[in-house]
Design a protein around this nucleic acid. Sequence first.
DNA 1: GATAGCGCTATACCTTAGTATACTGCACAC
DNA 2: GTGTGCAGTATACTAAGGTATAGCGCTATC
Lengths: 113, 113
Amino acid sequence: MKEEYVCNFSCPTDLKYIQDTLYVISGKWKVLIIVSLSSGHKRYREIAKSIPNITFRMLSKELKELEMNKLVTRTVHNETPVLIEYEITEYCKTLWPMLSEMISWAKHHRTVI
Amino acid sequence: MKEEYVCNFSCPTDLKYIQDTLYVISGKWKVLIIVSLSSGHKRYREIAKSIPNITFRMLSKELKELEMNKLVTRTVHNETPVLIEYEITEYCKTLWPMLSEMISWAKHHRTVI
DNA sequence: GATAGCGCTATACCTTAGTATACTGCACAC
DNA sequence: GTGTGCAGTATACTAAGGTATAGCGCTATC
């Protein structure tokens, strides 16, 4: 384990940052939606179908929050009928280092528990 | 951004790992408790006092979960009166790379939002 | 003109997470 | 023997997160 991770745990700002991050990605559906979008699904119904058991209510609620956090864009194409496309942003990819750490931690954790 | 973070988002196992990790550290109090223990608080009442508004119920519930995940140890010293000490484990420190990424992501995110 | 698909919203409900308050049993101090 | 601190537990409640179901307005297809 590298020493760069040694950090001042008593720093209340750091704590706040951790809580902020948790707030952005926690909830039952957020990561699932990001995954669905990452694998190319763009349209509302398409995303809904790709995520078993999600309801329309939850999907639109979570998409809105992801959009507010600039992790997802919503584009309205003025064709007829109107076509709406959701896409993950480039910015969303800045989550990767963190998600990657989560994956490797949990992988290791499985061997410990 | 380094390429080592490029990852197969459609991999369902990775998704499961992320959810596992979130499960371990999410909730209103877990990180606060880890912080309190990290800054040297060891005894139940002491921890409780250091975290504003936490109730005994939540504290004991969360400590149990943290103990189950081997992030915290509970030691009973058989003096009279009995003395109980909680401590974070060395293993808990393996969370640091991830928490560190969370902190830096949220720091950056503040500038974006 | 009935049915189906699109992109949702509305309402009501249920379940989980967290809160509030009281209480237990033990040891010590006054 | 009353009060204090320790380490909690028990019970009841509220709030937040999530579910279930129905429906809207639009367009296209049969």
